[in-house]
Simulated assay, not measured.
Amino acid sequence: MVPSEKPETETREQGVEFGELEAKLRSHEYPTTQKELLQEYGDYELELSDGSKTLQEILEGGENTNDDVGDKQYDSLEEVHQSVLNMVGDEAVGRRNYSDRGGSLEGQGIDREKGDETL
């Protein structure tokens, strides 16, 4: 298995639960266009930390304002995953400013832009 590949049973990636869509995307023939993906799978819902959105809502950014949106080509499953992850952004993140290493970054004197302590 290539290190970047997920096991076939794992459908969550960086806060996005692909669910049954994962198997569909794995078996889809690539290259493909965004238009083809949305025609076949646009109604499939992906779970995010704050709810769910359809593949169409995610890939079109919530609105279909660009007529050539369907012309985008995906050469692999990984490209589809990356596009989804890029489009959901902060929506896939759990609690903001939270660290599982003992609390949040709030009030700890850390300049987030520099990554330096400002004490």
Rank of each mutant, 00 (worst) to 15 (best):
54 T>F: 07
54 T>D: 12
54 T>E: 08
55 L>I: 11
55 L>F: 08
55 L>W: 02
55 L>V: 08
56 Q>R: 15
56 Q>K: 15
56 Q>T: 15
56 Q>A: 14
57 E>T: 07
57 E>P: 08
58 I>H: 03
58 I>R: 03
58 I>N: 02
58 I>T: 03
59 L>D: 00
59 L>T: 00
60 E>S: 08
60 E>P: 02
61 G>R: 01
61 G>I: 04
61 G>K: 02
62 G>T: 04
62 G>V: 09
63 E>W: 12
63 E>F: 11
63 E>I: 09
63 E>R: 12
63 E>M: 12
63 E>L: 12
64 N>F: 09
64 N>R: 13
64 N>C: 07
64 N>D: 10
64 N>W: 08
65 T>E: 14
65 T>K: 14
65 T>D: 14
66 N>I: 08
67 D>H: 10
67 D>P: 14
67 D>M: 12
68 D>H: 09
68 D>A: 14
68 D>R: 13
69 V>R: 04
69 V>Q: 07
70 G>W: 00
70 G>K: 00
71 D>S: 13
71 D>G: 11
72 K>L: 05
72 K>E: 06
72 K>V: 04
72 K>P: 00
72 K>N: 07
72 K>A: 06
73 Q>N: 10
73 Q>G: 08
74 Y>D: 01
74 Y>N: 01
74 Y>S: 04
74 Y>I: 05
75 D>K: 11
75 D>V: 10
75 D>H: 09
76 S>Y: 08
77 L>E: 00
77 L>W: 01
77 L>A: 00
78 E>R: 15
78 E>F: 08
79 E>Q: 15
79 E>G: 09
79 E>L: 06
81 H>D: 06
82 Q>D: 15
82 Q>K: 13
82 Q>I: 04
83 S>F: 05
83 S>Q: 11
83 S>E: 13
83 S>N: 14
83 S>D: 15
83 S>L: 05
84 V>I: 09
84 V>A: 01
84 V>T: 02
85 L>K: 03
85 L>G: 01
85 L>H: 04
86 N>P: 08
88 V>K: 01
88 V>L: 07
89 G>C: 09
89 G>V: 08
89 G>Y: 07
89 G>N: 11
89 G>M: 13
90 D>Q: 13
90 D>K: 14
